[in-house]
Computed example of a mutant assay.
Amino acid sequence: MVKSAKFKLTGREKSELFGEGIVTIILLILLNMSIYVILSQLIATNPGLKNGIFQIKMSLKFGPSDFQIWSWGWLFVVLMAIIDCFIVYWRLMRRYSQMQVRHIIAELHYIAAGHFDHRIPFTLKGQTQRIIASVNALVDSTINSMEEERRIERSKDELITNVSHDIRTPLTSIIGYLGLIENRQYHNEEEMLKYTHTAYIKAVQMKALVDDLFEYTKVRQIDRPLNIVSVDMGAMLEQLGASFELEAQKKGMVIHLDEPTTPLMIEADPELLARVFNNLLTNALKYGSDGKNIFINLTQISETEAEITIANDGAKIPTEALGQVFERFYRVEESRSRKTGGTGLGLAIAQGIIDLHHGSINVTSNDKLTSFVMRLPLKHPKEEK
């Protein structure tokens, strides 16, 4: 926030303005004297004009004593004094405005020299103040754009680093095991099959990472076209719950679905929403496996919005990690992610898809439940073309 202060002239500028006024007054006095002399000579040499002025003078009498308000000399002085005041005022205000512009230009040069946290601090009146406000807003916008560009560049570098790291690890294993086979460094066919199976598992991990990365880059495109249809959200969640039921039983977990008695229709891309719920249910099974339950809750919270919650009663997410779980490649525990084979992109993809639907997603976690709460509009906003 810029602290505004009243515009002040420097001592030198005040002296300059005072000198401007004195010079202007002197020039105007000389000009007035010249005009007076010229008019006096013109009247003296023109009897008709002189007689006309005299007649006007004699007709302008007031009161019982025939008071005359006409006097050629005084009338000229008063008239020229009024005109001179306007000229002096105009000249000084013009010079004052020039000094204001000079200060603004000096402030701009100071900012351009690298002092990007500086803003024009003083306030003026009229259109000049609009210029100052526009300049400050332009500098703020430029700085924000520069910071955003730097952030994007850092983000790209981090993306390349993370992808390189996550691909290099399984790729190293694949090359290592295939190298053993290539060099016939195995004792029997069973050992060779073991090597090929390990290489296959690592290749599957690489494919999962590439698929997730591809999906992540697509959902980050704000102009990605969506296949918007009316979706029965309860029916979709029932199908997803049924598809995960067998895996949940293997882990000793039970999936509970709570939905409205009447169908709740949402305008959305069903394929993308299914990807979101798949990612969240997969996470619940992987990282909530020390719990016993997964809860899916669907409610209509207003005339225009629905809420979907996917929760589990497994181990809580550390408080310091809650603000980072939607960041790409972020893993709460690196060792656990390696064990479960997570890419660290699932929640980032989920958030991207929810954003495309103009909704929101957040997470809460305590000793009882870890809950991912999504809010989606019932009607998909029409995109402006």
Results as ranks from 00 to 15, higher is better:
K61E: 13
K57A: 15
P64R: 01
Q55V: 11
F67I: 07
W72H: 09
I56C: 03
W70F: 13
S65K: 13
I53E: 13
G48K: 02
W70K: 05
W74L: 01
G48Y: 02
G52Q: 09
W74G: 02
F54G: 08
I56A: 07
Q55W: 08
S65D: 15
S59N: 13
G73K: 05
P47R: 03
F67N: 10
F67G: 03
W74C: 00
G63S: 07
W72R: 09
K50M: 13
L49P: 07
S71M: 00
L75W: 02
S71K: 02
L60G: 04
Q68R: 06
I53K: 09
D66E: 11
W74Q: 04
W74H: 05
K61Q: 15
F76G: 00
W70I: 12
L49S: 02
I69T: 04
N51S: 14
F67S: 06
M58D: 11
P64H: 05
P64G: 06
K57G: 13
M58A: 09
G52W: 10
I53N: 08
I53A: 14
K57L: 09
S65W: 05
P64S: 08
F76L: 02
F62K: 03
G73D: 05
I53F: 15
I53R: 10
K61M: 15
K61D: 08
F76N: 00
F62G: 00
F76E: 01
F67L: 11
L75G: 10
K50W: 03
S59P: 06
D66T: 09
L49E: 02
S59K: 14
W72D: 05
W70E: 08
L49W: 04
I56K: 05
F62R: 06
Q68I: 03
P47G: 07
S65Q: 15
W70R: 05
L49R: 01
W74A: 00
G52L: 10
K57D: 15
I56G: 10
W74M: 03
M58F: 05
G73L: 04
W70V: 15
W70C: 06
G52A: 08
K61A: 12
Q68V: 06
S59A: 15
S59V: 06
K50E: 14
K50Y: 05
D66F: 10
P64N: 04
S65I: 09
N51F: 09
G73V: 00
K50R: 11
W74K: 03
G52T: 11
F54M: 13
K57F: 10
M58G: 11
G63H: 04
G52Y: 11
N51K: 14
W72T: 09
P47C: 12
W72P: 01
I56V: 12
G63E: 07
L75M: 07
N51C: 05
K57Q: 14
S65N: 14
